[in-house]
Nucleic acid binder design. Structure first.
Lengths: 250, 250
DNA sequence: GAAGCCCTCCCCAGTTCTTGGTATATCGCC
DNA sequence: GGCGATATACCAAGAACTGGGGAGGGCTTC
């Protein structure tokens, strides 16, 4: 039964060419999945000339307003948890993924007041290109349609793939590449080393390290060290395992 | 029928604690999905070169030897296509995702000679943490079990999540927590703002922002901004979604 | 009510980073 | 050979960060 729904949804999406049509299709399928609401987000990394981020949802107006305000503070725990899970997850289990601050709990409580209860979110990440989430929620007090969660997982993924397609984001592989030396300096910077320390480690002059980082910043079109590191990390140019060296001394 | 298989697989995986047991489970499920082979890779370090941290497969010996000896992992078009797709894909459709070079085609041909025909690969990425792929293949001449591909998609994702779990790459999310204000300052710092800019944004004095960041650094026992940000990011206290989020998409 | 945390603000000395230059040498490619 | 990319090295000014102090008010908890 769930699979049939997913297959039907997939064949519907083939025809979808606009964001509005996708929103429509998601709204319909979320009802048939026994959810009350859906929300789909898709963001690109680069701040330059890229298409604007995509947000489709049928949340209650009140919650949407609140959400925009909260969003400015950047504190949606569901979105944060998306960076920690390979598969969809129930919001009730979010603490298995990330720590919740007081503000986080407050936000979830406000959500319940606005008519958003438990939910299920499907995350996807394409290094250097995009990051998307697709959530389905039920009203407070209602239970998630557990027998349908696997179908939900598929449907969310299909929705995200469709969003990626219609967003026009697909043909922008412009991921700035760094030279080996630049990446090396960047890596030591990410490990918390100063330019002077990196110079000693690599056996070159401080000025050279500074120059490498300078050019790397230009490539990414950012003007500070932390943004450079975060962009490289998001793109997969460096990884946490490189930074914290948990395994593979290498 | 397909979903039932996925649910059964999911309940099996709960008990799996070792890589070997996961390989066993994947082998069994791939047969029931009407595939002839499977392969699962997981890389902690996200740069594409070098061998994966985890490799489970039941490919023919011959192909495995070729693959490893020639270090084809870095050149594998299937692996490359994984960076371009949000969902699983059939190898036959790989040209929709990436251009194929002559070497790529040659490699696929060698695979067929070794007993690997068409296949379906499920890619997953966790920003900064891991990159994984789960492939299922049929022998040359055989057709993919198209009615089961959606189930395959789920099963691959479950396998990857399980691999991620047993690989020891996950960290418990109960690290030094920051106060909400500290987190907020940290977040703006991660967005590339200086203390002065953050002060204006939050409507407080520069000194206060500096103080929040100072105490946050002490909590994490690091002495520079970039390490603070990376630690908080890794712990899930902030997320990429927070950092790269656009202002007011409306 | 005292202890503890959080948020706010201030000062200062020293260090580090960022940005703007310039310069040499090597390497591969057309 | 010229061109572009890369790696190396240097200088200087100004902005930003780091680490060391201190201090008051609000809130919760015991």
């Amino acid at each position: 039964m769930g699979l049939k729904l997913a297959e039907e949804f997939a064949s519907n999406l083939v025809k979808v060419e606009t964001e509005a049509a996708l929103g429509e299709a998601l709204g319909q399928v979320s009802r048939r999945l026994e959810f009350d609401h859906f929300a789909l987000t898709l963001q690109a990394r680069t701040s330059t000339d890229g298409p604007p981020d995509l947000l489709l949802h049928d949340y209650p107006d009140e919650w949407a307003r609140v959400y925009i305000n909260f969003e400015l503070a950047g504190r949606d725990p569901v979105q944060r948890a998306c960076d920690k899970s390979l598969t969809g997850f129930e919001w009730d289990h979010i603490e298995r993924l990330i720590p919740l601050t007081r503000g986080d709990r407050q936000m979830l409580a406000v959500g319940r007041e606005c008519g958003i209860g438990d939910g299920y979110t499907i995350p996807r990440h394409l290094p250097g290109e995009a990051r998307g989430t697709c959530s389905f929620a039920v009203r407070p007090g209602a239970n998630l349609p557990r027998p349908l969660l696997m179908a939900t997982e598929i449907i969310g993924a299909l929705g995200l793939a469709c969003a990626h397609r219609v967003s026009g984001l697909v043909r922008k592989p412009s991921r700035p590449a760094l030279s080996d030396r630049q990446r090396e300096c960047l890596l030591w910077a990410a490990r918390g080393k100063t330019a002077a320390e990196t110079a000693i480690i690599l056996g070159i002059s401080i000025e050279t390290v500074i120059q490498h980082l300078k050019l790397a910043r230009e490539r990414y079109d950012v003007h500070c060290r932390q943004s450079l590191i975060l962009n490289a990390l998001f793109d997969g140019l460096i990884g946490f395992s490189d930074i914290f060296r948990r395994r593979r001394p290498d």
